[in-house]
Write a protein that binds this DNA or RNA. Sequence first.
DNA 1: CCCCATAAACGAACGTTGTTCGTTTATGGG
DNA 2: CCCATAAACGAACAACGTTCGTTTATGGGG
Lengths: 194, 194
Amino acid sequence: MAQTKKDDVRTKIVESARNEFQDHGYAASTIRGIAKRAGISTSNVYVYFESKLELLFAIYDPWLRAQILQLEAQAAEIADPKERLRAIIATLWETFPAADGGFGTIFIEGLAVSGREGQYSRDLLHWAEERLSTLVASCVPQERADQFSDTAFAHILFMAFDGFALNYGLIGPSRRLDRCLDLIVDLIVSDFET
Amino acid sequence: MAQTKKDDVRTKIVESARNEFQDHGYAASTIRGIAKRAGISTSNVYVYFESKLELLFAIYDPWLRAQILQLEAQAAEIADPKERLRAIIATLWETFPAADGGFGTIFIEGLAVSGREGQYSRDLLHWAEERLSTLVASCVPQERADQFSDTAFAHILFMAFDGFALNYGLIGPSRRLDRCLDLIVDLIVSDFET
DNA sequence: CCCCATAAACGAACGTTGTTCGTTTATGGG
DNA sequence: CCCATAAACGAACAACGTTCGTTTATGGGG
């Protein structure tokens, strides 16, 4: 009966927004800039996305899920549990904040700026913590398995990810991160060494 | 030779800003609202503070320092090391984000929104981590003292504080926090029990 | 004690922003 | 081949942080 929403327009908006966010961060990116880069009018963006924040989620959700799945694949190839655990946490605290132009950082920025509606990100966070928890459990010595039977540790890791991502955006790569990784890994699998 | 900046005007601005931030958060607070509440004109705020972000720092810096000093006093009265450690981390992850209308949360929000100039907050973060590190060291068993001789653990605690503060602002108090506290404390002083 | 240079204080304005509105234009089912 | 419908558009709205030009109060020098 009328025009229909076109997948290629939606894709163009998403791609344009991803580039703008990576170039300028969330707050400094404008809907006008995103629309211009996509080759459409400013107001037409709102035909496809309700708000700037929803646009960010549309990019971040699949991005994080892909990152987690990729992390699982990489971890599976590391035989030593201690080494594997270190790689997992290093990915979360070091790689993610810096990856793809600091995208982890940009999402945290967007959440802090626009957010007052937790429900959006809650499902994603739970999913990610569940996967991360399973991953961590595979690195923990048997006698401590019961301590890691729920998602509490993964929750702590993710909360700290928020902090590292924020700091990465404000200051840049942390020089103390290696020491933090050594410490947290030692706290968990030190029994293997002694 | 002319009018001088008046301490009571400056104080009124700070008090007004503190109330506005607590009522509406950082991004939703306006300079106009702060000025009106302080009983002065909008532009006069800029005679006393360079920007909205600097105004936030002027409030947050002494606030955090006072909170840390108060934490030190409270911790000193807890004899049992394990209990003391739990109280310290609980204060950082649970009390701080919620205290004074979520002020810890509001600062993280402000940093994420306006921040591109890490130097401002860097000194404060280092100071806080130094104090926190000393505090934590007093709870750690002797045989693990070398692991806690630097600020790495305090840094992790603060990074996670960022996450908990952010989540408190977006979702509200975490129900899983007790489990996280149990876990992190057990990881550090479990030797005392077994 | 009285100026007056100076800077606080002010109202208006600037340049942006995210978002909405009214209109035009393209299109897919009858 | 229509035409109701919704995509697409340009202009406008309301609100923001910040700046500007002017007015007004004041503290040190005569």
